[in-house]
Amino acid sequence: MNTAFETYETAWCPGCGNFGILNALKDALTELGLKPHQVVIASGIGQAAKMPHYINVNGFNGLHGRALPPATAINIANKDLKVIIDSGDGDTYGEGGNHFIHAIRRNANIAHFVHDNQIYGLTKGQASPTTAKGQKTSLQFDGVILDPVKPIKLALTMGAGFVARSFSGNHEHLKKMMKEAIMYDGYALLDIFQPCVTFNKVNTFKWYNDRVYELPDDYDYTDLDNAFKVADEWGDRIPIGIIYKVEKPTYIDNVSFLKDGPPLVDAKLDPMMAEKYLDDFR
């Protein structure tokens, strides 16, 4: 195993679903031939959001719910960096819900890995936006009364060009999905089932193992109508894989001087270049 990305001890519970994600990510980056300084991981707050501390790449461990805005701006400021987000379901679909909607519209070049454990881990077991209706938690004593967010469907509705799902218990599949998302040109959502062994006694490794199935090789991921149907599959059988993927112009593509010019960070700064604007005020 490549050790370029090794760092720091983790604070996750033994057996946590996050380990599968960390290992798959290290392997994906290694297999893509990326070096630590070429990659940035942005995250918010939560157990998932500690990822930048457990892998040696550039890291922006910001505020709860706010991984997307800095990640978007990092891509705009330096298009040469590979920008990844690792954050949880609460961070992405709850606190950061507004940013999620608009990040899809912007279509910056970001691979967004959502560690979706359907529960709040860091704050000890309250409902997350994806917790099942009726599930009892450490705060929703009579069970959750809200319908869950459906991230795949929401992303499809907003026009995301890459929408996929994987499971932290399936290393090969997860690694493959991560590589696809990182190589995708634009915003790529990868919702990852990640069992929380401490606080979610419903959605366990066994629960997911019993239900997930890989979309077949002949699945047409360019068919949006069908993708909506697949996104709705939930219950006894839950599909994983690339649910929808098409090419779309990215944020960078839409700004000509970003597309054709050097990265913004390499721009030459010279106050005298702005002197001509005084003519607007003569």
């Binding site: 922006f60 910001g62 800095p70 400021a77 960096l81």
Partner: peptide, 12 residues
Amino acid sequence: NMALGASYAGVR
């Protein structure tokens, strides 16, 4: 948060 991301990445 965006402005901070851009600044982190090196632009004013």
